[in-house]
Design a protein around this nucleic acid. Structure first.
Lengths: 220, 220
DNA sequence: CGGTAGATTTCGTGA
DNA sequence: TCACGAAGTCTACCG
């Protein structure tokens, strides 16, 4: 990884046109061709960047990063006014990040314990296919009726729309829908209820039995 | 900005739990409290990060970054095994990025020339309010009929859904919809047409008159 | 390669 | 503070 701290101006042309006036920035050139221009503020997003695969030309105070070709070429032009630091580090092998708690895990837990959705449900299959995409969980309830379950980390209006599209397409009589999420937005809940879709908030820790539901609230 | 290249392990707990095994990483500490952990590959996104406001404790090979408090605390724990480099740069003032070509510009241009949408339209107002949000452009056509226009850079199924929601709510008889975008996805076009919504692809450069429509194709 | 859905999305804006 | 919509979204997955 090459790290350059320099006073520079950056021009981007591609999906849009952007100009970054001359100031001191951090330029990051990664081994895979990624180029990032960072400021000393502004959170996690670079001011400008280019994702691999790229071609980098660096000569005489002008660095040009290209991607694609012809009409759809992306181009990042870095005009260096003054270099304050320029170091390269060999960072060796990279090791993958291990995540836990994303939607797929939630789906796994709910697939194992669909009763956590509040009704006595029996899982028929995960990723039930429709012509516009898979339903996360397809179940049947006590009465044998079909229940389509959409799982999100955050339940938004979009999630309700997505589940609604599935329900329109599903060729099963009386199939109802459940939106399950760790948090459900009020307006999503309102829209869901107006469409007869049930909402269930899920606590992943409780689901896993790492922690009991807060029964003290009701035992007193 | 403080830049540290170090062999380290990173643990994140917050919205999810993540572990980054020990390897050489770039640690970036920005003046505004942002902390980013970058690898020598993997594009523009940090492996781990925390956005401001944060509190950073750094002592004896253990860096702890905190955000929020109580049950919703986010915590980033960086366990340093070996420091390869540790430098701090004063980067001075930051200057804002200037962008051009985003949706707002598209809306401005179309507001000025609604006839570019393919029918003789007259603009009634931008950001026409409904109870679920504003319609980008509200126009009337030659017959005096109402036309609601949704503008996107890329026209997706979501854009069609959004416009459909507006059309449902608009209390104007016979109001039809137009989806205008620089590019429209085939499946979005299909969904739009099945709902009687017109699709128009817009070339921003042509719209601005910087470049004429490619008439040579038809003049020969 | 295009399309869809997820993301610790982030980030801005308006109510 | 909340909620919504844009983003050069990026990224993984599936056809």
């Amino acid at each position: 990884m090459r790290l350059v701290v320099a006073r520079c101006e950056v021009l981007y042309t591609g999906r849009l046109t952007a100009r970054l006036p001359e100031a001191v920035r951090l330029l990051m050139f990664k081994a895979d061709g990624s180029v990032l221009v960072h400021d000393d503020a502004g959170g996690y997003r670079p001011l400008n960047w280019m994702t691999p695969p790229t071609m980098v030309e660096d000569e005489d105070g002008l660095i040009v990063v290209r991607k694609g070709a012809g009409k759809s070429e992306d181009r990042l032009e870095i005009r260096i006014a003054e270099v304050l630091s320029d170091v390269t580090h060999d960072m060796g092998e990279s090791v993958a990040l291990q995540k836990d708690g994303v939607e797929r895990h939630l789906q796994e837990e709910l697939a194992a314990r669909p009763d956590a959705l509040g009704a006595k449900l029996r899982l028929v299959r995960r990723e039930w296919p429709t012509d516009i995409g898979p339903v996360d969980l397809m179940c049947r309830d006590e009465s044998g009726d079909w229940v389509a379950v959409e799982i999100k980390r955050v339940g938004t209006i979009d999630a309700v729309e997505q589940l609604s599209r599935y329900l329109e397409r599903i060729e099963l009589d009386g199939c109802r829908g459940i939106l399950a999420a760790q948090a459900i937005k009020p307006q999503a809940r309102t829209l869901a209820e107006s469409r007869g879709i049930d909402c269930v908030e899920i606590d992943l820790a409780v689901l896993r039995g790492q922690r009991e539901p807060d029964l003290t609230l009701f035992s007193a």
